[in-house]
Each structure stands twice: as structure tokens, then as C-alpha cells.
Write a protein that binds this DNA or RNA. Sequence first.
DNA 1: TGTATCACTTGGACGACATC
DNA 2: GATGTCGTCCAAGTGATACA
Length: 366
Amino acid sequence: AARDQQQKANDARKELHALKRQLADVTNADDSAPQHGRKRKKMVDGGSEEDTKEIKKLGHKFVMMKMIWLPDLSGTIHTKLDDQYNPLERFENRASKVQGELADLLDLLPQKFHGEIMQSEWLIKTFHEAMQNQRSNTHTRLRSQCGPEIFDCTAIDLFSIESRRDKFRQMIGYVERDDGSARYDRFNVPLLHKNYNGSFDIETVFRGPILHLASLFGGHKCALLTTKALTAMKKTGKPNQATGQTVSHLWALDHCTPGSIGGTAIFARWAVSADTTLTAQGVQTGINWHADLEKYIQYLQNGLDKRKASVLKLFREWDELFFPDSETSLARNNDDEDREDQTTKDVMDMLDADEEEAPAEPQTDE
DNA sequence: TGTATCACTTGGACGACATC
DNA sequence: GATGTCGTCCAAGTGATACA
């Protein structure tokens, strides 16, 4: 009976498609398409259908592998590339951050989109919409669909601002001081660590088991995006075999990046935060998520660039877990010896140099 | 900006059949 | 009977879109 119903539904769908096609034929009857020569590709607001599709895909990939937000995409794209830009100084000031964003974009976009076309309204709009789309889909699926499985809680725990705040705020870095003030810390965060010992630790940071579960949403592995898959990973500690298409296949991913690990940390923290919307600056928590992400990327990129042992080890662990067959790991490909590790204090001094105090008084008036 | 939902694509499971 | 091939069904992942 079910198959009979399905067949009827399929027939109805086919009929609808046929009617739509007929309507399109009638609508297009007056189009004065060239009769000879090469067929022109259909243009959509300045870009061909294929190009639009490709830019959308790259926008999705950018969110998961580079940066969740680009605060001023148009401004960044219209910025002149500085030949003197030094990636090691990326996070020193706003200008160098923009140069870093531009470098990320140029790295991601194929050559054919460089130059004038990159500054076209069509490309910027398409890319921007794709980024928004990816953020929405990811955080909705992370919090609403698989949140209880990942964070080992009930759906009710994740439902309201108050329940998330009460149950999880310590987990995402909320600390109260002796003087009564409180704030959300960026690195002293239990959720980021494996076996958190009360403070930031370069040996355990970004190794929390919850991060590994949440990273399934970041395209880190051809894994089933279901509660069943999450349960399997919880049990075995490893992602299972994929069925169907996955983003790692679609986006041709074969290694983790500072943006993907840092982004996973932000998505995971946000999912159990009091914030209702995923904005660069959290409305309820006051957390500057974008700034936190920049700091995470800064820490990871700095460790890679300077061949710091703890960071290289971290990348090796993530790549072993999610891309065991990959030969392009950012940590594996360098023949240099690992260098002496930084101390936790050195790292904190570097990262806290320009840190702003973020208030942490969750609003509950929504 | 968040959410629900739909369409499309992919790949695994399974049965039918052919071949050795 | 064992094995391989093919076709079909279905579950699942992803992107897009409408609507709040």
C-alpha cells in the first residue's frame, strides 16, 4: 500500500515537473536566443549557473574551513592586496586581519574568480548568502537535531535561554570573580579540553571529546550525520563509514585547518550557550564569538607556523582521526623537526595582549 | 537570522538472475 | 552451490527555499 501511494506521489510529481517545463517553454518562447554558434550559458545576475553553484559551494566551505564570519565581506574584497603582508602578523591589527581574510579568499577561490570578477556584486552577494546559509544549517542541526546526543542532555536542556545558561555556562567558560563580576573566558573552557584540570592547558586544549563529536558537522569526516553515528563515535571514539554524500567528499577535504578546528570549537560552545542567534557578538552572553574564533585561529596558526610541538601534535591527532588516509596534513607535510614547545604562560601572554573584557551577564528578557 | 521542509544525490542492502 | 552482476528500494547527507 505504501509503495502504491509512493508511486502515485511520484507520478504526480512527474506530472508537476512536466507542467512546469511546459510553462517555462511558453514563458521562454519570446526569448531571442542566438540561433547559431556556441550556446550561451545561462546567466544569473552576472554569473553563469555553474559559476553561481561553484561560488555557493565555496562560500559553504569558507565558513567551515576558514572563518565563520567575514564582518565586511565587500570591504575586504575591495581592499588592495598588500604585497608586504606577512601572515605571521595577521592578527596584529585590523588592517592585517583584512589582508589575512583576503588571502584566505584568494586561497579558496580558483584563479578564474580572481581579479575584477571577484569584486562583482553578483559574486559578493552569492558568497555572502552561501555563508549565511551554511551557518544557519550547521548551527540548527548541531543544536536542535543532534545536540542532546552530542552534549549528553535532554532536548529540554537545550531548549530555552535559561536552561542552557544554567546547565552549560561553566562548561563554555563562565567564571565568577571574587569581586562579584563575571565573564566568559576564551581559553579556560572545560568544553575545549580533554580532562580539564581547571585552567588552559596546551597539552589538552582542542582535544575535548565533545569537539570531536561536534566536528562531524564540520565536514571533517565522511560520517553519518545522525544520532546513530554520534552514538557509534561515542562508543568507538572514531567516526564511522559514510553512506550518501558528505561535505568532505563534496568539498574535497583531506585535512584539518586552524579555521575548521577553531570553528568547531565556536559552534560547539555556541550550541550550549544562552545565545539564541548565531551572531558575531552574542546578544544574551555578550561573548564576541568572532573575536574568540580569531584568537583560536591565531593560536593554532601560530603553532603551525612556528612548528610548536603541542600544536603539531594536535593537528596530527585530528587528521589521524578524521582523515587517516590523507597525506596533506598541515602538521605532517613539513620535514622540519618539531621545535621546543611554548609554555602555557607564553601562549596566554601572546593571546591576551589585546584582549577586551567581555561582560557576561546573560540577558533573559527574550 | 532561525527553522522546517523539500528536492536531489549517493551509496548500502537486498533480491533476482546468469554464469561457472 | 558459489559467485558475480544488475536493478530497485530506501536511508541519509546536503543545499535551497519559504516563512516566521
